[in-house]
Amino acid sequence: MPKRGKRYEALAELYDKNTQYEIDEAVAIVKKAATAKFDETVELHIKLGVDSRHADQQVRNTVVLPHGTGRDVRVAVFAKGEKVQEALDAGADFAGEDLVDRVQNEGWMEFDVAIATPDMMGQVGKIGRALGPRGLMPNPKTGTVTMDVAKAVKEAKSGKVEYRTDKQNIVHVPVGKASFTEEQLFDNVKTLLAAVIKDKPASAKGKYLRSVTVTSTMGPGVKLNPTRIVEIATK
């Protein structure tokens, strides 16, 4: 086991690593443990009882967090015609048909969310190898392939996050900043958990929420009580 630093060990004394906490208790601990010199990101890590190798057990969707993520989101919209101006008017940082060439020929990737109109997907498909590994490929299921680009841009800017299972069947999602109030973090965590619970695949058997941990960028992970999560998040 790698040796932990003195700061990490001191922070770990703030809680019992073998205890599963209520959401509000965990949020309070994480905030207290976020002592870095920058505004740490608070993240939720959810181990699910699914097998993402099977298409019918993959969990992937989006949800708008009530208090956003606390970071500026750069949005690129692959569109043409009047949809370009519509996207820019809605707050997109970049928009146009030429963005495909910039990604393909210049390796340009200075954006956090990619949105595309359906008539652009033929061209966007050409840069799928660049966008896919970064989780940036527009997808109808997540609302990022749409003709209503104004709505998509506004949602992305206001705190819409995507969650999806990785190869280990774990969902990793930012839910705010350490500078958020405990109430704001509680609301965001509850909203995300409610969405993930709602998306439980019908084919998933056994315990769905295997483990749930909330942590900050530099802090230790605090475990949540899965049973209580279902009670609280689905009220």
Rank of each mutant, 00 (worst) to 15 (best):
P2Q: 08
P2M: 02
G5R: 06
A10Y: 10
A10Q: 14
A10N: 14
A10M: 12
L14D: 04
Y15I: 07
Q20D: 14
Y21L: 01
Y21I: 11
E22V: 04
V30W: 04
V30S: 05
K31Q: 11
A33D: 03
A36R: 06
T41V: 01
T41W: 00
L44P: 07
H45Q: 13
H45K: 13
Q58C: 13
V63E: 04
L65F: 10
G68P: 06
R71V: 15
V75Y: 06
V77P: 08
A79C: 11
A79I: 05
G81Q: 05
V84W: 03
A90D: 15
D93M: 03
E97T: 09
R102S: 02
V103G: 03
V103H: 03
Q104N: 13
N105C: 12
E106F: 03
E106V: 11
D112S: 09
V113R: 13
A116S: 15
P118A: 06
P118V: 06
D119R: 06
D119V: 05
M120Y: 12
Q123E: 15
G125R: 04
G125Q: 05
G125W: 03
R129P: 10
G132Q: 12
P140E: 11
K141D: 05
G143Q: 08
K151P: 07
K151T: 15
K151M: 09
A152W: 04
S158K: 09
G159L: 03
V161R: 10
E162H: 07
D166K: 11
V171W: 13
P174F: 02
F180E: 11
L185Y: 01
V189I: 15
K190A: 06
T191R: 15
L192Y: 08
V196N: 12
K198Y: 06
A204V: 08
A204F: 00
G206F: 05
L209V: 11
R210I: 13
S211R: 14
S211N: 10
V214C: 03
T217N: 01
T217V: 02
P220Y: 01
V222G: 02
R228F: 00
